[in-house]
Write a protein that binds this DNA or RNA. Structure first.
Lengths: 238, 238
DNA sequence: ACACACAACTTGTTATAACAAGTTAACCTA
DNA sequence: TAGGTTAACTTGTTATAACAAGTTGTGTGT
């Protein structure tokens, strides 16, 4: 059972990257150069490059070439005391910005209504924001804010992130329940976040509660796995 | 700018999966059937299938066919009180087992020595375990236990997981510092965990402390993103 | 010196073809 | 009927070829 050519080639290139022969941002050999260097067909060279892309080591741009990807991640702390994401970024020397993709007052999906404890008549503010680090798309945040809290804040929410807006307006976030998982970029996400189809994404699915255990905000931050990680500290609780 | 054929086909199939026309474990049409149904070349049909595989919706076996993957995950709780992974699985009706891949008393890598606060002479027990859920590989746990604690426990560690072994022997884990991230399966991990190259993996990188803030165990659990997720609860800490 | 057009280069899509490795079903023989 | 062999089927690898979409470099004209 011999190793497929495309695996051999991609592992050779991977070792070169890891050895520092190619640094973040460097351009890898073109398909044609790989064909010549390794005496293989173009489809084999392409598959080798695809292996690197699928492992997050490189990114390909049509007409430009294939480039080594940076391996630097921003760490978001989930430990007490709760810190806002933007602050964590600033602390790590990363410029944070966001762009509103969607903002509307609407009827929530059933699962959201349940999570927010809304009765049949409850409305929410649906917000979809593209979060950028150093000007580069890093995450999508899709959230639903109970309209009871959101109605006086509609204008502010379009200019700043939800957590700090709530805090500044006397609605403290006292605790957050969350799930963290990994998933694959589907076609839509691959477009927004500029990653290949199937690329790993971290999903931080959260429900934020204010005083009296009242759920106020439910959402999910879907981030590029090569841009984000989460840190936390847990106690045994005895 | 029209949608590539391979994307159209894979999205059609994706909708069929999501609509329940194909259920977990069902076999998708063969490449030849797709070629006929959609009047495309084999390479286009293959790319469409590859898109589904890369998005975690299907898995391909040479000679057998392509099958819809289950979408059920085990949730590991990181909230207080700290619960052992095996217990969380049992609570969710999942049979847990593991297999020792490596077990040795050795000199730790520099980063591990730093994390465990070991001086120049300190040794560790390196353990590499393949963790299985319902008999299927779900994760690899690679950990380094300070030999000061591990020396009397060497035999037990090979038969049960490290956390409960410590607890049963009067070495309580009082708190755990951790990082959670997502990464891509490299060639070795793709083999162990039976996932395609580049498949998303969750990495839970932990340092467990016993009494007096003493680090005792440092390691990483690398799990299939389609098998595991983590839940937690955080407070604002005021 | 600057702007535009075109050639050369690069990656993306799709086609046809052949061989390899693995699985399953069908057929034949004892 | 059971077991072994082979054909049919299925996915994996690799090759050649052509066209499409995008980028960069070069040459020409103002």
């Amino acid at each position: 059972m011999s190793t497929p050519l495309h695996i051999s080639i991609s592992q050779r290139l991977r070792h070169q990257i890891e050895a520092g022969e190619y640094r973040s941002g460097d351009r890898l050999p073109s398909e044609h150069q790989l064909m010549e260097t390794f005496s293989v067909s173009r489809i084999t060279a392409r598959q080798a490059v695809a292996n690197l892309v699928s492992q997050g080591l490189a990114i390909a741009y049509r007409g430009k070439g294939v480039f080594v990807t940076p391996q630097k991640k921003v760490t978001y702390s989930l430990s007490s005391p709760l810190v806002f994401l933007e602050q964590d970024m600033i602390r790590q020397g990363v410029a944070f910005s966001f762009e509103n993709l969607e903002f509307e007052r609407t009827v929530p999906p059933d699962d959201v209504a349940i999570e927010l404890g809304l009765l049949a008549e409850g409305n929410v503010y649906l917000q979809k924001k593209l979060l950028c680090m150093d000007g580069v798309a890093g995450a999508i945040d899709l959230s639903y804010l109970n309209a009871k809290f959101g109605d006086p804040l509609a204008s502010q929410l379009q200019h700043q992130m939800t957590f700090p807006t709530l805090a500044q307006n006397g609605i403290p976030v006292e605790h957050v329940d969350a799930i963290i998982e990994c998933t694959h970029a589907d076609y839509e996400m691959s477009t927004y976040l500029e990653v290949p189809l199937g690329h790993p994404l971290m999903v931080y699915r959260y429900t934020a509660h204010t005083t009296g255990q009242q759920p106020v905000l439910h959402g999910a931050t879907v981030s590029r796995a090569d841009r984000f990680c989460y840190s936390l500290s847990t106690r045994s609780g005895q």
